Computed example of a mutant assay.
Amino acid sequence: MLIYLRNRILSSALPFLFVILGVFFLARLTGDPANLYLPLSATEEMRAAFSAQHGFDDPLFVQFGDYVAQLATLDFGDSLRTAQPADEAVLRAFPATLQLAGATMLLAVVGAVVIGSLAAYRPNSLADRVASFLSATAASTPDFWFAIMGVLVFAVQLEWLPTSGTTGASVWVLPVLTLLIRPFGVLVQVVRGAMVSALAAPYIKVARAKGASERRVVFGHALRNAAAPGLTVAGDLTVGLVNGAVVVETIFGWPGVGKLMIDSILQRDFAVLQAAVLITALTIFLLNILIDVCYALLDARVRQGAMA
């Protein structure tokens, strides 16, 4: 297991290095921060002093070297807008994103396991066809379109739900539903396919011949063996939620790291943007390692193949 874990960490480290390189140089393409933080009447001397104060007057590769040296000491720099440490701003916003992603995936996994298992229990039945149609529709629905329609129908026209906010249970409904729809649709299809194959396996016939109840057969024997592909897809979808909550957080004003990234781009707050992207990338990196470990624990062939 340790050899497998080491190989996965080494293979994931190179993309993380590219993230460090890319976020630094792409952030500079958003424009000169002096145009935002100095008045229109600012003189060239004021602009030069501003650039010198924040190190923007050095060549880009010199700035990048200084940035990497700071990262080596876990120093992400200070926010241009608030003059506070950039990592503190990101860490304040990150729990809101993790809570949103966690609630979404919990509902998606539980719902997909129940509906996918019931659909696979009687293939080609009416329930199976309805579940397949709804899951395919949900998996192909763009989240930004669903978010806009949700605001228009349930918040503006019906006035049942708020358009934004952080207090009360009602503020969770639209953001969670928007993030939930695609993972739920994908997981239902994956669970159904895995369960159809599992229920047709010889060990299921043996379990039934021994008098096991149908509930034990479906949720005890078949679901346990069908969990590996579902776990992998659920992990990938969780990573996508953490990485792709920008649209949802922006539309609903959710105070997470996605909205913080957008605000940092608009404000050309390079330090906060870089910290947000890197901490998000590190979280995704750790989630991928955790997914790989869980998958290896479920399937010994994965460990043996990785160590071969």
Rank of each mutant, 00 (worst) to 15 (best):
Y4C: 12
R8M: 02
L17E: 10
L21W: 12
G22T: 05
G22N: 03
A34C: 11
A52L: 05
A52G: 15
F56I: 14
D57E: 10
F61R: 03
Q70E: 12
Q70F: 05
V90D: 00
L106Q: 07
L107H: 10
A108D: 10
I115C: 00
G116W: 07
L118A: 04
L118H: 00
A120I: 15
Y121A: 11
S125C: 10
L126Q: 02
L126M: 10
D128N: 14
L134Q: 09
A139E: 09
F146G: 01
V153A: 09
F154Y: 03
F154T: 12
Q157M: 03
L158G: 11
L158S: 09
S164R: 15
G168H: 10
V171W: 13
T178R: 00
T178G: 04
V190T: 13
R192L: 08
A194W: 07
A194L: 01
V196I: 15
L199I: 06
P202W: 03
K205C: 03
E214D: 11
H221K: 06
N225C: 03
T238M: 08
T238L: 15
V239A: 02
V239P: 00
V248G: 03
G253F: 08
G258K: 01
K259T: 05
L260E: 08
I262K: 02
T283I: 14
L287K: 01
N288Y: 04
L290Q: 05
I291T: 10
A300L: 13
V302K: 05
